[in-house]
């Protein structure tokens, strides 16, 4: 019974007006959750966690750097799942959501690269290191940009979305290979990889801000995704009846 109603509800999300309302309702809650988690996370990050004995206060950069990096990768997985659903079942709302993941994922990749570079300056003594993780993040950024560019290049948005979905899946196969190859390459070129910060050696007192910020960033991804998808849907359906009804009805909201 419950399962059935969930299933029906899920199917209804394929209908543009329902999806539109769903985004409208859910997105403020996600933004609110993001705000709360960020405030808690920042409080921990700045007032509770002591400075690291080696990295001193620069360790606080990692509380946004690491969640951003995780989200940049998790965002790609979300996008790939949506793209798969879009290609197999041809659901238009999923196509739109998959495409709207790309700019947000690119934004997180950018945060990750920028903060990583800022962290690297005092710690490694250089803004840019051809380190495996940095390089594969840079390549990931280009993949995101390629997907956005491909989608934007089509006159017919639906066609663009489907073609770009294929690229998303191709990228999904390639990203692990790229990551592996880049790791291989850095170990070939330079034996030393400075790793002051390793997951295993992390002290438990550093966990709370990391966890809160990670949740915050995930909620933000969802909120921004819903906002963007709603706009894109409206823009694509501007000549359709339900949009006109919405506009004529209870005013423009």
């Amino acid at each position: 019974m419950i399962w059935k109603s969930i299933k029906v509800g899920f199917h209804r999300l394929g209908s543009p007006p329902t999806f539109y309302r769903f985004c409208l309702l859910l997105s403020p809650w996600l933004w609110a959750g993001f705000a709360i988690c960020t405030i808690i996370g920042l409080y921990y990050a700045f007032y509770v966690v002591p400075p690291d004995y080696q990295q001193s206060d620069t360790v606080r950069i990692l509380y946004i750097h690491v969640p951003a990096a995780w989200q940049a990768m998790a965002g790609y997985v979300v996008m790939a799942i949506l793209a798969m659903i879009a290609l197999v079942w041809r659901i238009r709302t999923t196509e739109i959501m998959a495409m709207m993941c790309a700019p947000i994922g690119a934004a997180f990749t950018l945060i990750c690269l920028a903060t990583g570079s800022i962290w690297g300056r005092p710690m490694w003594g250089t803004w840019w290191e051809w380190d495996a993780r940095l390089t594969s993040m840079l390549v990931l950024l280009f993949i995101y940009l390629g997907i956005m560019g491909l989608y934007a290049a089509f006159e017919d948005r639906r066609k663009g979305a489907r073609v770009a979905c294929i690229l998303v899946l191709v990228g999904l196969v390639n990203i692990p290979i790229i990551h592996f190859s880049v790791e291989w390459w850095t170990t070939l070129h330079q034996g030393k990889t400075i790793r002051i910060f390793g997951e295993s050696s992390m002290h438990y007192s550093m966990m709370p801000p990391l966890i809160w910020m990670t949740i915050a960033v995930k909620l933000m991804f969802g909120a921004a995704l819903l906002d963007r998808s709603r706009n894109e849907l409206l823009s694509q359906d501007r000549r359709k009846g339900w949009v006109a009804k919405k506009l004529l009805g209870k005013g423009v909201k």
Binding site: V139, L140, F142, I143, L145, G146, G149, L150, A153, F154, D156, K159, G160, V163, A164, I166, L167, V170, G171, N174, I178, S181, V182
Partner: peptide, 21 residues
């Protein structure tokens, strides 16, 4: 992938470069 676009020539290198790394 870029067949249906008007500016395939701009997009091609961006699409190819990450995949051939």
């Amino acid at each position: 992938l870029t067949l249906g676009t008007n500016r395939g020539s701009v997009l091609l290198p961006i699409l190819v470069f990450p995949l051939v790394v």
